[in-house]
Computed example of a mutant assay.
Amino acid sequence: MAANGQFAIVTGASTGIGLELARCCGENGFDLLIAADEAEIENAAASLRSTGRQIEAVQADLATTHRVDRLYEATRGRPVDALLANAGRGLGHAFLDQDFPAIRHVIDTNITGELYLIHRVGNDMRQRNSGRILITGSIAGFTPGSFQAVYNGTKAFLNSFSYAVREELRGTNVTVTCLMPGVTETEFFKRAGMMDTSVGTTSKDDLADVARQGFRAMMSGDPDIVTGLKNKIQSAVANVTPAEALAKQHRQIAEPGTAKS
């Protein structure tokens, strides 16, 4: 699985799954360009240099196309062998109670910026007829997310988008893989304002293990990976459960005040 001399971009890499995906890349021979919208990205870069690879960090809010352009320009024309599109934001509480600028930022981060970066790098890959794309979707994309409606909607979009683009690239040497984790031990729920919910306070999957599974799936060219047996069962059940019932079930874990004492 070693990829000595190859080059990867990892977004949302300051903490969480993104940082662990970047670590997997570095440990397997990829030089790295990592990005996030917070200063912690420099600390992440410092920790990743222990892998012995070339690491460059860009602090940029990838919700905007001009910031995505800045990240793309930081490649300095070096061919990207792997793009791990992991940047994402969550947002808890009822849709009508959320501030619309926050809603827009989730959509622009999870969808608009993500697609723009994939479009730019993916075109280069197709022209070279070589490359790997990993998109971080979620099993949340299988469920109407009451009290997390916008986030779940963006993940449903990404799950669907990944399969569609993979099919469009059939016959090329460019692969698209969708990583679909479940509830994972990251800062996600704290940042989304969901620490007063059942899902925010429940036990969670190990993020390093989730990242390793995603990395292996990308390197194997698999279409998708749902991490963890419980999540595999949950996603399978969601596919045969009426949407109204799923929305009611999601309310029980995501509505403010459902956290167990």
Rank of each mutant, 00 (worst) to 15 (best):
T202P: 02
L229T: 14
L117S: 10
R132N: 05
D61M: 07
D31Q: 07
R53D: 04
L21S: 02
L246R: 08
T75Q: 05
A13Q: 13
S47K: 15
D196F: 05
T112E: 13
K230F: 07
I9N: 09
A2W: 11
P101Q: 06
I55R: 00
V199Y: 00
E73T: 10
D61P: 06
E38A: 11
A13G: 14
L96W: 14
L33V: 08
C24S: 07
H93Q: 09
V80S: 08
A39C: 10
L169I: 09
V199M: 13
G221L: 14
Q59R: 12
A2R: 15
S50W: 03
G193W: 05
A36Y: 06
A238I: 03
L134F: 10
K260M: 01
Y72G: 00
R216H: 11
T112P: 10
E27C: 01
A2L: 15
A245N: 12
I55M: 04
S235A: 15
A208W: 05
V226G: 01
R166F: 05
L134W: 00
Y116N: 08
E27S: 00
L229Y: 12
L246A: 00
Q98K: 06
L91C: 03
H119V: 02
R128Y: 00
N86L: 03
G12I: 06
P181Q: 09
L19K: 14
R49W: 00
R128T: 00
G26P: 01
R191V: 03
E114Y: 14
T15V: 15
G5A: 06
N86H: 04
G257N: 09
R166H: 01
I233S: 15
E27F: 01
L207Y: 11
M218C: 14
A39H: 07
H93T: 04
Q252D: 04
Y72C: 00
T15Q: 14
I118G: 09
A192L: 10
A243R: 03
A238K: 02
R191D: 04
F7Y: 15
R251H: 01
K155L: 05
G26N: 05
A156M: 08
L19A: 09
C25P: 07
S220C: 12
A140Y: 04
N4E: 14
K204H: 12
P223L: 03
A74Q: 02
N86C: 06
E244I: 10
